[in-house]
Design a protein around this nucleic acid. Structure first.
Lengths: 214, 214
DNA sequence: GGAGTATACGAGTAATTACTCGGATTCGAC
DNA sequence: GTCGAATCCGAGTAATTACTCGTATACTCC
């Protein structure tokens, strides 16, 4: 293969006419399908263009290289995740849900996010190391949701953790990591039971009698 | 590149003389270095052979293809992990450690396993999807350690979970997933504090007053 | 020391695939 | 209707790299 075009990941040209916007949309959508089906290495730009009903030339008109396609997909996925989690957080706050229900809501939102397109999610986050810029975006999204959760924790009297910010970070990490495991690699039949235990895990932690723990 | 030699992953020939055993060892060791430094895609068999001080021909004498090298590394890593965790479990049992100390021991063992060669660990488990046979090996190792933990949980009166086998599985999943996150992607400065919280998370869960949780 | 086997070598091959570019086509604006 | 810009096309190219195979060397055992 030819030497990969430096590290440029941004679109090469902005589509201005409706026609080209459709082309870009078709390419992104086809990329999602092909990456999900073939994995990162197995997906070729020619195949993606073909699946999009477009020539490779057009693909490269808008995406400087293969990685740029991945990045576009990841960014869309992250935005979607942020929206899902924000929605959950807003609902929890508005209805002042008690802790177990709130945690359940968080876990369910996380499961929904991962399950929406399992195969693609696996490729995006289990293959191909994220470029630093994208990594930062993901981290920022996680921090944002952790901050909201920390705010909620401070309001709930039954929460006993001494450092809500730290606790929120740990909870987000744990829920994300475990759900990822369960959904992407786990046994579907055990998902419900394990999700229940995950809720118990988090709720116990947040409401534990801290004096007993050391 | 040439079509990849089917799905054979087992060594092609068993080294019988001391000389060739050294060659194989050098290749494996070099593969670890190169994969860690360059990532899966960036590592080439020519480069690995060169780093091992050996010709490509010799490499292919013992490993049918590039993936077989990865599999060898993963198998070694899994064996090492099993040994580390078994050792921790044995110590916990022998000294009848109380729960917080036992969990701490588990978390520390897991951290040690992940931190021993961060970069390689990342490549092995974050890039390149594992072939099914290897996946099964990893799962079996996790189940084995979960079974030992379940036995321990049943012995400790302070443990309140209704289903120790399920709880043990969840705990192993959670500890593995979170530690992986913390060590491979996380901020090193926060590791200690987050590890402490992880211990609190697990201990709280295992000793929670189950009536309060729903 | 000779026969047979195991091991090592590494230049070369074949396949793959990311990416280009010159030219055709379609659009929007006046 | 025309002109310039935007878009599209896709055969071809250049680079990469996994893997082979004929030959040379070292070892073992008698």
């Amino acid at each position: 293969m030819r030497a990969r075009r430096q590290h440029e990941l941004r679109p090469r040209r902005r589509p201005s006419q409706a026609r080209s916007r459709e082309t870009v949309a078709a390419i992104v959508e086809a990329a999602a399908r092909i990456f999900a089906a073939e994995g990162y290495a197995g997906a070729t730009t020619n195949r993606i263009a073909e699946a999009a009903g477009v020539s490779v030339g057009s693909l490269y008109e808008y995406f400087p290289n293969k990685d740029a396609l991945l990045v576009a997909l990841i960014e869309a996925h992250v935005a979607e995740g942020q929206a899902l989690l924000d929605e959950a957080a807003t609902e929890v706050m508005a209805r002042a849900l008690p802790l177990p229900a709130a945690v359940r809501r968080l876990v369910d939102a996380m499961i929904a996010l991962h399950a929406r397109n399992r195969a693609l999610h696996r490729v995006l986050f289990d293959e191909a190391p994220l470029p630093p810029r994208v990594r930062r975006q993901v981290d920022a999204a996680e921090e944002a949701i952790a901050a909201r959760i920390a705010g909620y924790l401070r309001e709930r009297p039954e929460v006993t953790v001494p450092d809500p910010a730290l606790a929120a970070a740990v909870v987000v990490q744990a829920v994300e990591a475990v759900v990822h495991r369960l959904v992407v690699h786990g046994d579907e039949r055990q998902l419900a039971a394990q999700a229940r235990e995950l809720v118990a895990l988090v709720v116990s932690y947040l409401t534990a009698d801290r004096r007993r723990l050391s």
